[in-house]
Amino acid sequence: MIETIRIGHLLRETALSPYRNLVTRPTGAAVRTRIEDALSRSDCLTALLDFSDIELLDFSCAEEIVAKLLLAQASHRPRFVVLRGLRDDQHDAIEQVLTHHRLAVAALIAGGEPMLLGWVLPDARAAFTCVCRLGRACAGDVAEALSWPESRASEALEALTLHRLVRPEGDLRYPLLVA
C-alpha cells in the first residue's frame, strides 16, 4: 500500500499561510513532524512524498524533512520512501544533504522515471537502474544484464535492500512503486 503525502498541503497547514517555499529549519522540522504523524496512522509500506506544489526547498528544509525522516526510519517502523514532483534545484538540495549523511532515496523524475538521490556505491546505482528497467530482478538477472559476476550483483542488490531502495520478495527485488 502507498500513502501519498502532499508536502505543499502540509506546509500550508503547518505555516497557516499560503507559502509555497520550504525554507528554514523550524518549518522543515514542523513539516517532518506532520509527515511522521501521518505515517504513524497509516499501514502503508511505502510513503510517496509529493513535492509538486513546492517552489523552493532550501538545504535546511531538505535536511530537516528528507534526511531526518530517513534517519528516523531506523528507529521507527521502517517504510519505503519515494519522492515525486521535485525540480532540479530541489534535487541539488536533497542530493547534498543525503550525501553528507551517506543516505539515499528513490525519486520519480518527470515522466515517472525513477532515479536515486544521495549516496550509494556506483554498483548499487547501476543495479537500481537495472531493477527499474527490468521491473523485477534477482541477482542472476542483474548479473546477466550488466555482465557482472553474480556475487557482484548480489552485493549491489543487498546494498539497495539495506538502504530500502528496492522492495525484496524472496530472491526478487522490485522497484518501490511496482505492485
Partner: peptide, 19 residues
C-alpha cells in the same frame, strides 16, 4: 533553474542571522 538556487542561497544566508 537559477532563481531557485539563488533563493536557496539567500535563505541560508538570512537564516545564519537568526540562528
Amino acid at each position: 533553474g537559477a532563481a531557485g538556487r539563488f533563493s536557496m542561497a539567500l535563505s541560508e544566508a538570512c537564516q545564519n542571522i537568526v540562528e
